[in-house]
Design a protein around this nucleic acid. Structure first.
Length: 284
DNA sequence: ATCTATTCCTGGCTGC
DNA sequence: TGCAGCCAGGAATAGA
């Protein structure tokens, strides 16, 4: 599942091949690969020059001489420079000096193109690396939900997925179901630091190759070897040796260490003790 | 506002 | 061995 680090690695591997080059033609092998009608997409992209290749959240973005092309790989998508065609090749973007293949077994990946920024990219929240800790903390405090689903919400923060949400929470020693607004500023800041550290280390390791991920030149990542909790149910936590637990949060498998990551709401925000009354209005 | 369930899709796994 | 049934999961969407 390409998340921010994987997409960043793909972008870096493709940049030297694509920047400044002109798209000759686009073939959509599976109509599902196109967001909207394949034919207008094909026509829009043909003849356009790729000015820049960059990442926005989990989107791969081509700035064109006119408009943009954005690709989201979702779960099993791969973008391969000079890749060999197979039965999962869903689209081919041809250049004079080679071709870029979109491979995708499950067909969730989408190619967007247009004169303006496609709608899904407009909805993205801030980039982790561009969000100051103080602002991260205040955004957390404004939310009522649990921390893990919040980290997966691309409008809250762009780029984290299931792997890096779990790994960040483990490093920050925060329980995935902890209500976001109950995190003390110290712990919120710790989470911010953990997110940046995990993402940086994952990028440096070439991303996580669990099942499908490879970069634009077909290279696997190595960060999966450094996962501390993700996908490691029953295995010892690298920090304390306790068996990693798996629960489901926001319909996602969620792994954490029950000892390192206790659910610990901040005192000030705990409901007032009310022996018999249950849930009475506080009068606000 | 926030939650859950559902949908998309298909390889891989489980269990009989 | 074969096959049905279920699962994973990012994001959009509908409904509570």
């Amino acid at each position: 599942m390409p998340e921010l680090p994987e997409v960043e690695c793909i972008v870096r591997s493709l940049r030297p091949w694509l920047e400044g080059r002109r798209i000759e033609a686009v073939e959509i092998r599976s109509p599902l690969a196109a967001a909207g009608d394949p034919e207008p997409l094909r026509r829009f992209l043909a003849g356009r020059r790729v000015e820049a290749v960059r990442r926005l959240g989990k989107f791969i973005l081509f700035d064109l001489d006119e408009g943009v092309c954005a690709i989201h790989l979702r779960m099993t998508g791969r973008l391969l420079w000079q890749g060999g065609e197979g039965s999962y090749t869903r689209a081919v973007i041809r250049f004079s000096h080679g071709r870029l293949l979109l491979d995708d077994t499950r067909q969730f990946a989408r190619i967007y193109a247009g004169s303006a920024m496609p709608e899904p990219l407009e909805r993205l929240g801030p980039e982790p690396f561009e969000l100051p800790a103080a602002e991260f903390c205040s955004r957390l405090r404004a939310r009522r939900g649990r921390i893990k689903p919040l980290l997966l919400d691309q409008r809250f923060l762009a780029g984290l997925g299931n792997i890096y949400a779990d790994e960040s929470l483990h490093r920050a020693r925060i329980h995935p179901l902890q209500p976001a607004a109950t995190l003390s500023s110290r712990r919120a800041e710790r989470l911010h630091n953990a997110i940046l550290a995990v993402l940086e280390e994952a990028i440096a390791a070439g991303g996580s190759s669990i099942s499908d991920y490879v970069d634009g030149e077909g290279r696997s990542g190595r960060f999966q070897l450094l996962h501390r909790v993700y996908g490691r149910e029953g295995q010892p936590c690298p920090a304390c040796g306790t068996a990693v637990r798996r629960i489901v949060a926001a319909q996602r498998g969620t792994w954490f260490c029950p000892r390192c990551q206790p659910c610990r709401p901040a005192r000030a925000l705990q409901p007032a003790r009310r022996p018999l009354a249950g849930r009475l209005s506080t009068g606000r």
